[in-house]
Amino acid sequence: MTSTLTRRVPLGPLTDLPVGLGHAFQVGDTPLAVFRSREGKVFAVEATCPHKGGPLADGMIAGDQIVCPYHAFKYDSATGQCDQPSACALKTYAVSVVDGAVYVEL
């Protein structure tokens, strides 16, 4: 039925994601930044920083946070909350890894 609005989209093999870094994806109309932490967590957030449009996939991971490459605004990888009181939170997307393949819920 149409009651569920989310779709599960395959993003390719986990090994195509660099360890400890992010990569930019365009899934249909949705631009995403997908990260694979050194500890093995995979997470996805909206692609650009609400502050000045920094490409978050070019950022860094610091602990549980994503760091924007432009002005080092930091976002919680799980909740999307920003460390700056004036900036909005990032939209986050559920990600799963099944048999070495990465899926995102859109």
Partner: peptide
């Protein structure tokens, strides 16, 4: 590393 010099990866819905 994977995607070092790769821009956005496009995935069809």
């Amino acid at each position: 590393y994977a995607g070092q010099f790769e821009d956005v990866r496009t995935v069809p819905l």
